[in-house]
Structure formats: C-alpha cells, structure tokens
Design a binder for these strands. Structure first.
Lengths: 337, 337
DNA sequence: GGTGTTTTCGGTAACGTTACCGGTGAAATT
DNA sequence: AATTTCACCGGTAACGTTACCGAAAACACC
C-alpha cells in the first residue's frame, strides 16, 4: 500500500505558508514567529509528520546511521558490547545498522562491498576470524569513512581501536593457576592470526617463563571459539602422553566445553584439573563447579568504542586512539583444589 | 574530515557522458551500449563509487532498511531470533536497524517517536513488558507502515504475528511433570499483561485441570524474566506452608535462577523438586542437573517473521497472517526422580 | 519623516539519483 | 532512395529537505 507520508510541503499547503518557514519552524525557533511555529507544530502532529531522513541526509551529507559489523550476536560478549554501543548511540540520536558476518570472511566482504557510506556516518567493526580482508578496511578508511575497531582488531589498519587488556589478563590467569599449585598448564587457544588470540597466548607463555614452568607445543591447541571446539580440544589434550594438570582457555565457552568433556571422563575441574576461562560469561557462574575467569569489560568496550567513533565523526583530523581496558580476575571453584 | 564520495556526476564528468547514461549503465543494461557500460563500470570501480541510498531512497520512496525493535539482545532467544531475521534480510539485500528497548516502555516510546518511516520499509517488533504502547503501534500501521510482531505481540493490533505455540508448549511441559509423578506443580510466570505469559499460564492451568490436580493462586508467581527473578520466586515459594514438588518456569533463565536457589538450600532439582523451563537456552544443557525444557524455534521465528514482512512490503493489500510454530519437549535430568 | 534595524517570511538552488520523454544517427525495410 | 525502425544517449523534472539570499513589514531612532 505504501501510503504517502506527510511532508513539509503538505504542512505548508495546509497552512498556506512556505516550505522554508515550515522547515525552520520544525527545527529551531530561528527566524520564525512563535505563533506560526505553534501552528506548524500542531499541524505536523495532526498529520503524523516525520522528517524524511533520506532528504535531510542528502542535503546535510550525513545520515544518523552507524554500521556495526560483528562476527555473531548470539553470545554474551558481543551482545553485551552491542548493548554498550547502543547505549551511547541512543543518547546521541544515532541509529545502528547491525551486520552479522557469522565469522565468514566471504560474507564479511560481501557486506562491506554493499555498504553505502554516503548513508553512513561511521563504522564499528570486530573482524571475522579469517582476517585477510584488512586491505578492504584500509581502503574504506582512506576514502574518509570513520572506523573504530574493537576486540578483534585489524592490526595493520591505522584507525582507532578498543580492546580489553588481553596480554595482562592472560598473564594474570596463568599466574593464578600457578599460585593455586598447578604446574603443567595447557592453553586452549583461538584461531591463529587474530591479534587478541596472539596476545593471550603471549601472556600465557610469559607467565610460564617467569615462573620457569615448562611450555610444550602440544599443550597449545588452536581451534575455533565455540563450546564444541573446547570439547574437542580437551579430548586431544587427554590423548597426550604427558597430560596437563590445568587449562587456560581463550574464552569461557571453550572452557565450558572442556569441562563438559572432563565430566564425561569423571575428571573433576579444580580438584583434578584446574580450569580458567576468559570473558566472565554468565554461564561461568552457573556451571558446576563454577568457572574461574578473567572478566572482560564488554559493556564498557561498547560504550567507549561508540564514544570514540562519535568524536571521530565530529572532529575533523581526529587522531586515531588505542584504548586498552583492564580485565579482572574472578576466582571460582574450577581453580580450587 | 568527511571527504566527498564519488557520485554518478563525477563518473559522467570523467567520461564526458551524461548522468542519465551513467545511471542506466550502473543498473540494468537497458538502453545502454555494452562498451559504454563497461567504461562506466570501470570508472566507478576506480573512483570507489557507491550508490547514495539517501538519493535512491528519496526518488524510489523506499530505503532498504528494516527496523527491528527488541526488549534486549543479551539473551539466547532474542539474539537467535535476530540471527534468523538477519539471514533472510541479508539474502534480500535489506539492512537491519536494531533498536533495543531494555524492556523499558518509555524508551520504547521514545524510539518509536523518533523513527522516520520514510527511510524505513518495515518493522519487526517484540514489545516490551509493559505493553500499554499498543495504540502507538496501531497508529503506525494505520499510517501504512508494514509491521510484523513476534514473540511478544501486541494483541489488539491488527497485523501479522509470529509466535511459538505457547499454550501447547506449556501444556506439554506441565503434563510431562505430571507423567513423571509430580503432583504439586507451581508456575513461575512472567509479568502480567503479556500475551505469551497468559498463554503459557493457561496451558499450565488446563493441564492441571485435565489431570484433576490442585491449582493454587499462591503457586503462581508473576515477576520479571531474569534469572534473579526466578531466584526470588523460589524463595517466595519455599516460604509457603504448602510447598510444591515441581516448578514450571516461564523460561529457562527463571528456571535456572530457581535451581540456583534450590542448590543453596540443598534441594536437588529432579529428585526433590522437578523443574522444567521454556526456551532451550544452551545453559539448560550445561547446568547440573541439566534442565528439561520446551525448545522454542527461535531461529525459525526470526526467518518466518522477516519473510512475512518482506511479503507484506512487496504485495499491496497483504492480509495479516498469524503464524504459530510448535515447540518441542526436551527431557533432561531436572525432571527425573 | 526619512533612515536604519529587526523580525519574519518567501523564493531558489542544491544534495544524488531515477523516470520519462525526446532526439540523433545508423541500420533495416520497402 | 525514401521511409521506417531501432539502439543509444541527453535533458529535465522530481523526490523532501535545508541553506542562502532577498524582501516586506514593523519598529526604533534622531
């Protein structure tokens, strides 16, 4: 059906005044009589007038849209980050266009290619695992589109980035295991090539080195981020001749997967094998034994990212910033002997 | 900085041809020489040309945007529905503008009021708990905006709706508890006033009646949807003189909250008090004992909703449809004695 | 009462794109 | 050779809004 929505022309015609006056009345009180203004406002309400953002965007060369590019939304971390982004965007009257890549590089590329930057004021991006699409982002940035990366950042692209402190978080997690008496510590890692995966692995390795503990290649397993990956990874670890006595998982989902595998083998997390995750997914408090973890400031990351993007949009020649937010160790049962 | 993005005028100027020809070349091959077309395409790629959706939207009177209005995104159900919506939207080249209300009626209203329908082809809505904003939706629909409700529908608004089969799901869940030998069955419900809350409660009541089991007002508790609400609700139930021996929770989160409260009191779910939820949140398989539940077709609901909306947008005089998708009983430990 | 100032409004062009109509030249037809 | 047809292209107006300039009216000033 697509009826004709009321426009300022309709208001002008109904009131027998010019569109310019209506336009002015609808925004600021600038150059318009209070009486006239009220007439316009009343008529606008009567006709259910809503401004046409296509038109305003065209003339002002700015929509009020931000694009958000995410690998997925069905997990605690990203959905919380998004909520943080939304909090700031809402306050400033920006709309969020959410694109989910399903962690698929091809889909990511398709989405990027189909974006219309003229109806977009900026972008918030967490790249997919296969991060070879970086040059495409660089191209966009060179074209003048404000972009802020968070969490999964494209390393060689020069723009603002917001991350949790992956290195120190991993370091702290590993030291916590050591403090609790575990000595043979394995690492269930994420896919190779991602910045934060590398940082967490380095934190883990450096903590081991500091305490002069053995680091074995076979104790580091790279795979996906899913719970199932964690489950598989543990199976693989347990086939080893020299088994670890503790596990630092790159995120809580993988830690949970590992714990589920342990349960099947009657291995008790904490008592038999220490487990620590990363994220502080709500599930870590629900699972039994409960899961120690490094809490990520997901909501905060969303807020900061969005704020940074808005600064970027408003100020010209904005200098790229890198913000690193600290995590926090949360001790639970899975690291108590 | 906001550089000037390349337009078809730039392409026309560079190639010394008219904008009309460029416009035609960029879309269909209609009325344009293959050679010219190629020249345009090459130049467009060279200049990083992207169509300005504000301009196309203005002249074609349709953006390619759909608005999605949700109470929250940080839970399994809504994030999965959204992923389903996105799947269909992506296939058809639609963008999704996601608005999160935080289950706050005022915020919901603010968002609705600020929407520009002229830059929106349709809306997908799950209303907030306090569903008194229904007349606002009716107004929008009367203005000709295609709207599809899902899950939390506004009952008296005449438009398409997509829901899971709340009544039968609740009925089946309650019957399952009865079949497992529980007799004093309580219901931890959602807030009053919501359609699906009422449907689930009715399914529960009818199952009790069918099996001639007692139904007590004090065994039905209305509160929020959160895990914490479930925790509180159980506390309240356990202060009763006549305690129930089983609980049907309106969703898994509340069931989990109740189970956590039980754990504190050394009550074993299943053995002492049967528990069944609704959703099939992944956490229900992780918690111990694992939680029986009614699985909701969340992803499917998203897909169907979006498909319905697209039909609505394309066909004029589209008749409102109501789709009800069946749930599925999943037996786990929390209902085994 | 002429001059300046302010208030209030209208007209026009522009944003980037498409729809529509008209025109040119060449090819096809008789 | 004259006419018709067709492929291809250009010009113009329009979408809804705002920015800018100018003008009319009202008011103030000496």
């Amino acid at each position: 059906m697509r009826r004709h929505y009321a426009t300022i022309k309709d208001i002008a015609r109904a009131l027998n005044i010019s569109v310019s006056t209506v336009s002015r009345a609808l925004r600021d009180t600038y150059d318009v009589n209070a009486e006239t203004r009220q007439l316009v406002l009343d008529k606008a309400a009567e006709l259910h007038y809503r401004p046409n953002f296509n038109a305003t965007g065209l003339v002002k060369n700015s929509s009020h849209n931000l694009a958000v590019l995410l690998p997925g939304i069905t997990n605690y971390y990203f959905s919380t980050v998004f909520t943080g982004i939304q909090e700031i965007a809402y306050r400033h009257g920006y709309n969020l266009i959410l694109h989910v890549t399903n962690d698929d590089a091809e889909r990511e590329l398709n989405i990027i290619r189909s974006l219309s930057f003229s109806s977009l004021d900026g972008m918030l991006v967490s790249v997919s695992s296969q991060a070879d699409a970086c040059d495409h982002f660089q191209e966009i940035i060179d074209d003048g589109v404000p972009v802020v990366f968070f969490d999964r950042v494209a390393e060689h692209v020069s723009t603002s980035k917001v991350m949790q402190d992956d290195y120190n978080g991993a370091f702290e997690a590993t030291e916590h295991l050591i403090a609790k008496g575990y000595r043979r510590i394995a690492h269930i890692a994420g896919p190779q090539g991602l910045t934060f995966t590398g940082n967490r692995q380095q934190g883990y390795l450096d903590a081991l080195r500091k305490h002069k503990l053995p680091a074995q290649d076979s104790w580091i397993i790279h795979s996906g981020f899913s719970q199932d990956s964690g489950y598989q990874d543990f199976q693989q670890l347990w086939q080893l001749r020299s088994k670890p006595d503790a596990i630092f998982a790159v995120n809580d989902r993988k830690a949970v997967g590992a714990m589920l595998a342990m349960k099947e083998k009657k291995i008790v997390p904490g008592k038999d094998v220490g487990v620590i995750g990363f994220t502080n997914d709500p599930v870590s408090a629900i699972i039994s034994p409960s899961l120690s973890t490094i809490a990520e400031p997901a909501f905060e990351i969303g807020k900061v990212s969005c704020q940074l993007l808005l600064n970027h949009i408003r100020k010209k020649n904005f200098i790229a910033e890198e913000v690193v937010l600290p995590g926090k160790l949360i001790e639970r049962e899975s690291t108590q002997r």
